[in-house]
Design a protein around this nucleic acid. Structure first.
Lengths: 349, 349
DNA sequence: CTGAAAGCGCTTACAG
DNA sequence: CTGAAAGCGCTTACAG
């Protein structure tokens, strides 16, 4: 290590100086940093990794099929947000895409066995999510997107409390706003095309929908469960509209399904929003460019990514981190929802 | 290393056995592998990295803004394909998302300085792409998606030949088919909404369009250049349709822009395909669910990812690799293109 | 075919 | 506040 020689100190000192450890005189530190800069020297990440048992990288394991993944801009935006925080910190992101739960759990194990990452982001939380006990067992720090639910209580954790900090965006407000907005326009037969009930945000949005329907004083409204895929959204829309008394409005649990719903409605010759109102969730890029532009709930995945990255870095540095709650996702009104034609008649306009 | 003791050999022998190096008797090898399995021992990736100066990871640096990235399912699918090859090989994927070229080049440098990756995938090739000389300078193996063009010849490389293997999908065939198909339907005013001319696939698709127009014996056809974003696709469509003699068909250089074009056309009250035919490129998931379903060119990003990963692994193992040409992307006919209303009149039907 | 030893390039007690 | 040394856990010539 020429830096040590040039600065006239020992190797150990250089290491201390670079790691901001106490016990280095300001003058020495200055000399060392200058020498390093002049020599263009940067410590070997591999050697640091071996001696510190850290990888200086964070992991994201995405358990989705390529089809669902490709249709949903959540991850690209989320990742861009994560990167904007990690890059300046010299942390890398290790990404895995796995097709099923078995591969998913195997991936976490090998990521740890190989010391590839120092922590992970947990997205798409499920009920009684098996990843949580696994990560506890593996001793891998994590941050969850949203708060886990339904964890099986154990001896060590009798309350079934999440061992990890959560970074959350309340998505129930947006669903409630959607229903309230539609009810306010005069809709009484509002259906919900929900996401997978096994996923927390799927079932949570569904509950929010049911609550909002009750709060609006509407009769029971239909819900169809899907796997969040575009195709499932199209199929669900067809089923809903193919009834004797179809809904006049549909609240979709994500934008890709809502856009597919728009397509089905057009195909059936329905006018939007006159014959059918549609709302989505996420406000993906496409939302404002379809016709009519999609009324949807705007989420901020890049902001979520930034907050999650900050929280995970904080957790790893300090051993614990507070939950963070981002501003709730709110309804963005565009053209795909409006007063039902029947209401217009009823009010005599 | 208990494995050595258990197998009754030296540490070095264990290493030889695990790395398939000659000089280990079959019996010893067997004993060693058995001992390792029984002990659940797996070599430390960090230690291997330090001594072999390899990271056993591959990198992908995506130079796109979150907006463009989020609207384009190419990368998720491509990455899923890459992962399906890397995971079984014990290789990780390090992903970076950067907003501009400066950050992009900086990222490659730090990836190499930190020894994070052993090789990289080069996507979204540009004319005289600055990443190519940079990677040569850094000595980082790479595979390019498509063949680079316009490389500045240097003393070492007078022919301006790419130093890296290319994995390509011919996208000119699909554009040519689109034009031929539209011309065959009776269209004579076909416009092209092209991607960025600074990107190879942007300008290549445009040239293919021009060639096909000439081959069809059509008069000069309009082209508008965009940055591939949805918003730019919408704006270009508006400009095209807002002319005294608008085109009767538009060939879009990607699906997101085509879908935005569909939205604009609907908004203007045009019937698709009667008043306007539209074709896209990529066959993203949305394509078959919009209305009318999009006639587009089907590419196979996951397959591309698999081929690129295989080629890059081969390159790193053997020092060189052949270019690979995947089957050309072909036109998939759906409902968004048809005979122009004027042609129907002209032929008396 | 085998074993003892150096080396990868850091970090970190430990003694001074 | 400083310096010499061991250790992280592998790989790899090198001598036998």
């Amino acid at each position: 290590m020429d830096v040590a020689k040039r600065a006239g100190v020992s190797k150990g000192l250089v290491s201390f100086a670079l790691n901001d450890r106490p016990g280095v005189s300001p003058e020495s530190r200055e000399r060392i940093l200058t020498a390093a800069r002049e020599l263009g020297w940067t410590p070997s990440l591999r050697a640091r990794s071996l001696s510190t048992r850290r990888s200086f990288a964070l992991g994201l394991v995405v358990g989705r099929t390529p089809e669902v993944l490709g249709a949903d801009p959540f991850f690209p935006s989320f990742i861009a947000g994560v990167e904007s925080i990690l890059a300046p910190e010299g942390r890398a992101l290790v990404l895995s895409v796995v097709p099923d739960e078995e591969a998913e759990l195997r991936t976490y194990r090998s990521l740890v066995a190989d010391g590839r990452v120092d922590g992970v982001f947990l997205s798409d939380l499920r009920h009684n999510d098996p990843r949580i006990p696994l990560l506890v067992e593996l001793g891998l720090p994590a941050v969850t997107l949203g708060r886990p639910e339904g964890l099986t209580p154990t001896d060590l954790n009798p309350a079934g409390r999440s061992p990890f900090p959560a970074v959350s965006i309340d998505d129930t407000v947006g669903i409630a706003e959607s229903v309230r907005y539609l009810a306010g326009l005069g809709h009484s037969r509002i259906a919900h095309v929900a996401g997978s009930a096994s996923m927390l945000h799927g079932s949570r949005r569904r509950m929010a929908f049911d609550d909002a329907v009750r709060a609006a004083g509407l009769a029971e409204c239909q819900t169809i469960e899907t796997d969040f895929s575009i195709g499932a959204g199209a199929a669900a829309t067809r089923r809903l509209l193919d009834q004797d008394v179809p809904p006049t409005a549909i609240v979709f649990a994500n934008d890709p399904m809502a856009i597919a719903g728009l397509g089905v409605a057009h195909e059936l010759g329905l006018r939007i929003p006159g014959d059918l109102s549609i709302t989505g969730f996420d406000d993906i890029n496409f939302a404002r460019y379809v016709y009519p532009p999609l009324t949807t709930v705007s989420t901020t995945p890049a902001q979520w990514g930034r907050a999650a990255a900050r929280t995970l870095l904080f957790l790893m540095e300090h051993g614990s981190a507070e939950d963070v709650d981002l501003p709730a996702a709110r309804l963005t009104v565009r053209g795909s929802a409006g007063a039902p034609a029947s209401a217009a008649i009823a009010t005599g306009t």
